[in-house]
């Protein structure tokens, strides 16, 4: 039997908002450890992995590992009907008939909404994602997640928004990380310096560089990744010319959401 409860719907609402525009289906793996979610976009360019440990839930009972594919668009629609302070219960029975039940209960007026979701195929996830040693990344940038989102928005407004293939070049050089994009009639560069932690101890921009690196990414994807900002105040971007870049948001002490994408390579 699987039975989970969260006393505030916000966490799950934010997770769905952070993934449902780019990823249409996801694999949900429930085990004694917690929930692991994985999804890939239809072009197989980006991968998202989420971990919510059992401690993230107010009640967590999972006596047998359970894996299910679910349609994220349908789930996002259901969750938009849930209030932030609704109590969510997630249930699947032992003789599960390929469905999972999400219940939203309003603590104020006692109204209960029940959604049953059928399992769907997930085209190739979950994948085994090895964790590469830190030393294999040429640079690591940590910054406030709101700042990263703002940078993505600025670059998008400059690059022609109708162009689905706007490329952003992220380059790290000592104490600077630069975001560069080319619009129709010019270029745009946003320079972020490492900030002195004394000035703004809560919002540092930290740069760890082993060697200079300059990599190209599809801005459309980066924009979607920046929606993880509702889950964490900070984002860490790990860069390597021959590994997928990792955009990681830590979720309090209870897990993380990581987006993976390979840099574009020259033909």
């Amino acid at each position: 039997i699987l039975e989970l409860r969260l006393v505030q719907a916000t966490l799950f609402k934010n997770v769905l908002e952070a993934i449902s525009d780019l990823f249409s289906k996801a694999n949900f793996d429930f085990s004694g450890t917690g929930l692991e979610l994985q999804a890939m976009d239809t072009s197989h360019v980006a991968l998202v992995a989420l971990l919510l440990r059992a401690e993230a839930f107010n009640h967590y009972l999972c006596d047998r590992d359970l894996s299910m594919g679910l349609n994220l668009a349908d789930m996002a629609k259901a969750f938009r009907c849930a209030n932030n302070d609704d109590i969510i219960t997630i249930k699947a029975e032992e003789d599960w008939s390929d469905t999972v039940t999400f219940t939203f209960e309003s603590p104020e007026d006692g109204e209960i909404s029940i959604f049953d979701f059928d399992f769907v195929g997930t085209n190739g996830v979950p994948l085994e994602i090895p964790e590469f040693p830190e030393s294999e990344y040429q640079a690591k940038v940590r910054m406030p997640s709101a700042k990263f989102m703002r940078i993505c928005k600025k670059l998008s407004s400059f690059g022609d928004s109708g162009d689905r293939d706007t490329v952003v070049i992220i380059s790290v050089d000592k104490e600077c990380v630069n975001f560069f994009t080319r619009g129709k009639t010019g270029t745009s560069t946003i320079v972020c310096r490492q900030t002195q932690t004394v000035d703004k101890p809560k919002e540092p921009t930290l740069i760890e560089m082993k060697e200079q690196v300059s990599l190209a990414f599809d801005l459309r994807y980066m924009n979607s990744f920046s929606k993880g900002s509702t889950l964490s105040d900070q984002v860490t971007i790990s860069l390597s010319s021959n590994l997928p870049a990792v955009f990681e948001y830590k979720i309090a002490e209870t897990g993380y959401i990581r987006y993976y994408m390979l840099p574009r390579i020259e033909e």
Partner: peptide, 14 residues
């Protein structure tokens, strides 16, 4: 500019 490689192929080959 450049080519985008599939993340699926990358992890499958690991």
């Amino acid at each position: 500019s450049g080519v985008q490689l599939s993340i699926k192929e990358f992890y499958r080959s690991k």
